[in-house]
């Protein structure tokens, strides 16, 4: 049981990385981004391209930080991937959502457009890589560490948790300390007031997409390190990240973080009673219960 909770925290930190971006986009750009899961998939595959094709091609040596399953190649690929998916998110906004915003299309039309974008991203990945399951480093034995309370955990999983927490702290500092971060919080609080005070909301929106896309990409890569890559992985994260977002109240970054952990732990603990394939349904059931009991989420006002 303790072991499942620990696994849930690892999964939860990945869900949180997706949910934080989703909740920011939801509040600042103002619609439910159904392509957010696909940003995670895109991140996982961009990193795959960098570590298995680009870096070997320029002759970058292969290395491995024993006992972790990756080395310098992944360390270099990680920030580049986050930047690339951040650009992808901004690009999607410029090509699709910005035009719909200026046409005064409703939030539902934007959400539908993002659903279309999610299929476009997934199909592109399927065309390039096909539908197989892929490992970053195939054929590697990944022994687990034995911790007290009978917990078996792989070093990779400890790294995943630490990396996610590190990114959340960075985001926290960005929002509290920088001018852009403060402007973003102001826009999230009240868009009209932000406009009046001379904040360039279009710039804020681009930054929001960049952060959302970057964090989702990080989540995707970390999931790839933990489990494996599959074109449907982001789609399977969509319900959990929406559940985490709603649980933590839409627009609340710290709520999304906690929501992510709650959903992750619930999904892993459920495998003690249910078939593991039902993890998605568990996240969905929690979401339905929140909608019935407290639709504004745990941090929402009445």
């Amino acid at each position: 049981m303790f072991e499942l909770i620990v696994y849930g925290i690892v999964l939860g930190s990945i869900i949180a990385l997706g949910a934080i971006g989703l909740t920011m986009v939801y509040r600042i750009v103002g619609f439910a981004n159904f392509a957010h899961g696909e940003f995670m998939t895109a991140g996982a595959y961009v990193a795959l391209f960098i570590v298995s094709i680009l870096l070997p091609w320029i002759g970058f040596p292969d290395s491995r930080f024993v006992p972790l399953s990756f080395g310098w190649r992944m360390v270099i690929a990680f920030p580049i991937t986050m930047g690339a998916v951040a650009l992808l998110a901004i690009l999607a906004d410029k090509i699709l959502y910005k035009k719909l915003r200026t046409k005064k299309s409703g939030a539902v039309i934007l959400a539908m457009s993002s659903l279309g974008a999610s299929f476009i991203i997934r199909m592109t990945i399927l065309i390039i890589w096909g539908s197989d399951y892929i490992f970053y480093r195939p054929g590697l034995m990944r022994p687990a560490l034995h911790l007290p309370l009978g917990i078996k955990i792989r070093p990779d999983q400890i790294f995943i948790f630490c990396a996610a927490i590190f990114l959340v702290i960075l985001l926290h500092l960005f929002l509290k300390r920088t001018k852009m971060g403060k402007a973003m919080r102001a826009t999230a609080d009240n868009t009209d007031l932000a406009l009046v005070t001379g904040i360039d909301t279009e710039r804020i929106i681009s930054w929001t997409w960049a952060i959302g896309g970057g964090l989702a990409a990080a989540g995707g890569v970390l999931y790839g390190i933990d489990v494996q890559l599959h074109p449907g992985m982001g789609w399977n994260f969509l319900i959990p990240i929406f559940a985490a977002t709603i649980l933590g109240s839409i627009g609340n970054i710290y709520g999304a973080l906690i929501g992510g952990f709650v959903i992750g732990i619930a999904q892993q603990v459920s495998t003690a009673f249910l078939a593991p394939t039902y993890k998605l349904a568990v996240a969905f059931m929690i979401m339905i219960i929140i909608l019935l009991v407290r639709p504004q989420g745990i941090f929402g006002k009445e």
């Binding site: 619609f31 439910a32 159904f34 939030a107 959400a111 319900i239 969905f284 339905i288």
Partner: peptide
């Protein structure tokens, strides 16, 4: 959009 997420689920 809650209906959308719920129907998807």
């Amino acid at each position: 959009d809650y209906l959308a997420i719920a129907t998807l689920g």
